[in-house]
Amino acid sequence: MAIFKRVSKEYIQMNYTHYALAYGIYPIYIGKLHHESPTVEVRNWFPEWGLTFLDNIIQPMLTLLGKENMFMFKVTGEIKCDEDNWLPKMQRLKPYEESSHWQEFTLSQLDAAICDLNKMRANPDFPVWVDNWVCDQLDCALRFIEYSKDKHNCKSMAKDAYNMVADALLVLDLFSCKNLYDSKHDISNLEKYIKSKSKNK
């Protein structure tokens, strides 16, 4: 429950972009607004069963109206990344504590990347070379996470793993928003896109 197992401010800022109301009623954090399946988390201090309860009431009504699998929400505000407060906190952590933070962030994003990749694979036009590139990034990130645990909690390895998964998510977003399926095998374009996005952060 989000009452007792509250998510941290850092986790919210890393994984969600907006505050919203599910079905215009229930407070949630939400990310990936432009995807078919946005990421959702019940806001701190509200029980998760409340959203489940609403789902069980509203979804059958939508089914009767011929609108299956619709998750309606109203955006109420943007979640701003408070880097001035977050970075000093990370800097005060001991190396093994900071490594654990990056490992946690990476694994949460890894799950999201795998989910997105599986959805992209449903499109027969999704380029195999992009699929392979993303898989290489995710596989390498997972190995870095395991290595960071073994080598005295190496924080730089854990952070590198996070950056790899973040790059993979950027590329998946690029191919989900634009019709690039006919583009030639050109990894340099992906790298340029990643760098341009990183500069804007």
Results as ranks from 00 to 15, higher is better:
Pro47Tyr: 05
Pro47Glu: 06
Trp49Thr: 01
Ile57Phe: 08
Ile58Cys: 05
Ile58Thr: 10
Gln59Leu: 15
Met61Trp: 09
Leu64Glu: 15
Asn69Ala: 11
Phe71Trp: 04
Phe71Tyr: 13
Phe73Gln: 01
Phe73Pro: 00
Val75Cys: 01
Ile79Val: 12
Cys81Tyr: 11
Leu87Phe: 12
Lys89Leu: 06
His101Arg: 15
His101Val: 15
Gln103Leu: 12
Phe105His: 13
Leu107Gln: 07
Leu110Ser: 01
Leu110Met: 09
Asp111His: 06
Ala112Leu: 12
Ile114Phe: 04
Ile114Asp: 02
Ile114Val: 10
Cys115Met: 05
Cys115Gly: 00
Leu117Tyr: 03
Lys119Val: 09
Lys119Arg: 15
Met120Arg: 14
Met120Ser: 14
Ala122Pro: 00
Asn123Tyr: 09
Asn123His: 10
Pro124Lys: 09
Asp125Gln: 12
Trp129Gln: 01
Trp129Ile: 02
Asp131Met: 07
Trp133Asp: 05
Cys135Ala: 09
Ser148Met: 06
His152Val: 15
His152Asn: 15
Cys154Met: 13
Lys155Asn: 12
Met157Glu: 06
Asp160Val: 08
Asn163Lys: 11
Met164Tyr: 14
Ala166Thr: 08
Ala168Trp: 01
Leu169Arg: 13
Leu170Tyr: 12
Leu170Cys: 09
Leu172Ser: 00
Leu174Met: 13
Phe175Leu: 07
Ser176Trp: 10
Ser176Lys: 14
Cys177Phe: 13
Lys178Pro: 01
Lys178His: 14
Lys178Glu: 15
Asn179Phe: 06
Leu180Ser: 04
Ser183Val: 10
Lys184Ser: 14
Glu191Tyr: 04
